[in-house]
């Protein structure tokens, strides 16, 4: 459904996207994961027809983004990172305008507005001015706008950024439901989000694809390196030493009164840590497992690649 070949984009002299290629099949939900300024937005903007690539090529729904841009835009629903809303319009008039731009006829527009408003849970607000809506609602209006013409492909740029946790959960649920009918490419810098919504993930950093795999494969590849954060009071110099002796812990580092324990294998050493804490007579303040940050993953993936070579 989406095919990208050697796509490169320079902003002036700055390289934003560096020769990337990937494929997305029909019906897939693919996560585009990377830190800020990794090239996610640029790639999505090129696919959506907002920008043109410096070199390389891409196809969306079998239409070429260079020679058939209008066709591509007809088959894509796009939610940009900054939701493109007119604050002086009501949700209804805005969706009406968006649908008209996509070439829907009057009768269909009326029916589709009812449908997308229901899908995005905006029924009560349909005649409210967009400028008066909160961030979460605006985000949903953005999604409604993207799906109003029933596009085959949906491109969502950071759909859950800047909204509160309840809204995030709602939006994720919404995306999963949309995934039943649409092919979706969504970007995020939240690792856990990808594993909740997506079937496959493309990790991008500094304009290059670092890894591309199914969620299961990727988590097993980087899994096993679980991290645990431990906080104890009355610490002594021996804490690090004692902790290192626990089976299954490969490295211990100290950050103030907190200790970060890296576990070598897939097993869960938390019980043993507890035992050790009790035996040594420390007072336990907290013990929690820490999710790997994106930086850790990149470090892991890039060092892995180098050692493979």
């Amino acid at each position: 459904m989406i095919k990208v070949e050697n796509l490169t984009k320079y902003y002036g002299k700055r390289l934003a996207v560096d020769n990337i290629s990937f494929n997305i099949d029909k019906g897939e939900i693919v996560g585009f994961l990377g830190p800020n300024a990794a090239g996610k937005t640029t790639t999505m903007r090129i696919l959506a027809g907002f920008l043109l690539p410096t070199s390389g090529n891409a196809w969306v729904a079998d239409y070429n983004i260079l020679s058939q841009s209008l066709q591509v835009r007809r088959h894509i629903g796009y939610l940009p990172e900054a939701v493109p809303l007119y604050s002086d319009m009501t949700i209804r008039s805005y969706l009406n305008f968006a649908a008209q731009l996509r070439g829907l006829d009057k009768k269909r527009i009326r029916a589709r507005i009812e449908e997308v408003v229901e899908i995005c849970h905006l029924e009560e607000y349909v005649d409210v001015l967009i400028g008066k809506l909160s961030r979460g609602f605006r985000q949903r209006v953005g999604v409604a706008q993207a799906i109003i013409h029933e596009p085959e492909v949906l491109i969502l740029d950071e759909p859950t950024i800047g909204i509160d946790p309840i809204q995030v959960a709602m939006t994720r649920q919404l995306i999963r439901e949309l995934g039943k009918e649409h092919t979706i490419l969504l970007s995020t810098h939240v690792l856990s989000e990808v594993s909740i919504i997506c079937q496959r993930v493309i990790i991008i950093n500094e304009g290059k694809i670092v890894a591309e795999d199914s969620i299961e494969n990727l988590s097993s590849m980087i899994g096993g390196s679980r991290r645990i954060r431990l906080e104890v009071s009355n610490p002594s110099a021996k804490v690090v030493e004692r902790l290192c002796q626990i089976e299954g812990i490969s490295r211990v580092s100290q950050e103030g009164s907190q200790y970060i324990l890296e576990c070598s294998t897939g097993e869960d050493p938390r019980e043993k840590i507890m035992e050790s804490v009790v035996q040594n007579g420390w007072t336990l303040l907290s013990l929690e497992s820490v999710e790997m940050s994106l930086e850790d993953i990149f470090l892991k993936l890039t060092t892995k690649k180098e050692s493979d070579q």
């Binding site: 903007r45 907002f50 894509i76 007119y86």
Partner: peptide, 14 residues
Amino acid sequence: KMGTLELLLTAPVR
């Protein structure tokens, strides 16, 4: 400025 240009330029409009 408001980012709505992105809506217009990604719509099938010349």
